[in-house]
Amino acid sequence: MLYVKVKTEDGEELVLEVEGMTEDEIREELAKAGFKIEEIEVYEVEP
């Protein structure tokens, strides 16, 4: 499983499960949803 931890400019932290997306695609999708991203951390969790 691939997850991203996202910190927004307003200090909110989100953890999202993503599969088959690049970091650029993740940033693009979050921007479309109205999030202003300060930091993204991508990590993989073994089942």
Rank of each mutant, 00 (worst) to 15 (best):
K32T: 04
V42F: 15
K32H: 06
K36Y: 06
P47M: 08
M1Y: 13
D24P: 05
P47L: 10
V6R: 00
L16I: 09
M1H: 12
E38N: 12
V4H: 00
K5D: 01
E41V: 12
K5E: 02
F35V: 06
E9V: 11
V4C: 02
V45M: 09
T22I: 02
E44D: 10
G34Q: 01
K5V: 09
Y3D: 01
V18Y: 15
K36H: 08
G34H: 03
E29Q: 10
K32G: 04
K32W: 04
E44C: 11
E17Q: 13
G34S: 02
I40Q: 01
M1I: 13
T22F: 04
V6T: 01
D24F: 10
E19M: 13
P47A: 07
G20S: 05
I40W: 06
V45S: 11
M21P: 02
V6G: 02
V15I: 14
V6Y: 07
V45H: 12
L2W: 14
Y43S: 08
P47E: 07
Y3T: 08
M21L: 10
E17W: 15
E13D: 06
V15D: 04
M1S: 10
R27E: 03
V18G: 01
G34I: 01
L30I: 05
T22N: 08
E19H: 14
L16N: 00
E41L: 13
E19V: 14
G11S: 02
L30R: 00
V42L: 09
V6H: 01
V6N: 00
L2H: 13
L14Y: 10
D24I: 08
E46K: 11
E12Y: 13
V4M: 02
E9R: 11
E29M: 15
V15K: 03
V45T: 10
E25H: 03
G11H: 02
I40T: 02
V18D: 00
E41M: 11
G34D: 02
M21Y: 12
E44G: 08
G34A: 01
E28I: 09
L16A: 01
D10F: 06
K5Q: 04
E38M: 15
L14N: 02
K36P: 05
E28H: 09
K7R: 11
T8R: 07
F35E: 00
G11F: 01
I40P: 01
E39R: 08
Y3V: 13
I26E: 00
E28C: 04
R27G: 02
V45A: 08
K7W: 12
A33P: 01
D10A: 09
E9Q: 12
M1D: 02
V42Y: 14
I26N: 00
K7V: 10
E38K: 14
V45N: 09
K7I: 12
L16F: 14
E25P: 00
M1L: 14
E46N: 13
M21V: 06
A31N: 07
L2C: 07
Y3M: 08
Y3E: 03
E12Q: 14
T22L: 04
M1A: 09
V42P: 05
R27F: 07
L2N: 05
E38Y: 14
E23N: 04
K36T: 06
E9H: 09
E19A: 12
A31V: 13
I37T: 07
T8N: 06
E39H: 13
E17G: 07
T22S: 09
E28M: 11
E12F: 15
K5M: 05
I40F: 09
G11W: 01
D24R: 11
E23P: 12
E38T: 15
L30F: 06
E38H: 11
I37A: 07
A31S: 11
T22K: 03
T8P: 02
V4W: 03
D24A: 13
E44F: 11
E29S: 10
L2Q: 08
A31I: 13
K32R: 09
L16T: 01
A31F: 10
V45R: 14
E9K: 15
E41C: 08
A33N: 07
F35Y: 12
M1N: 07
I40R: 01
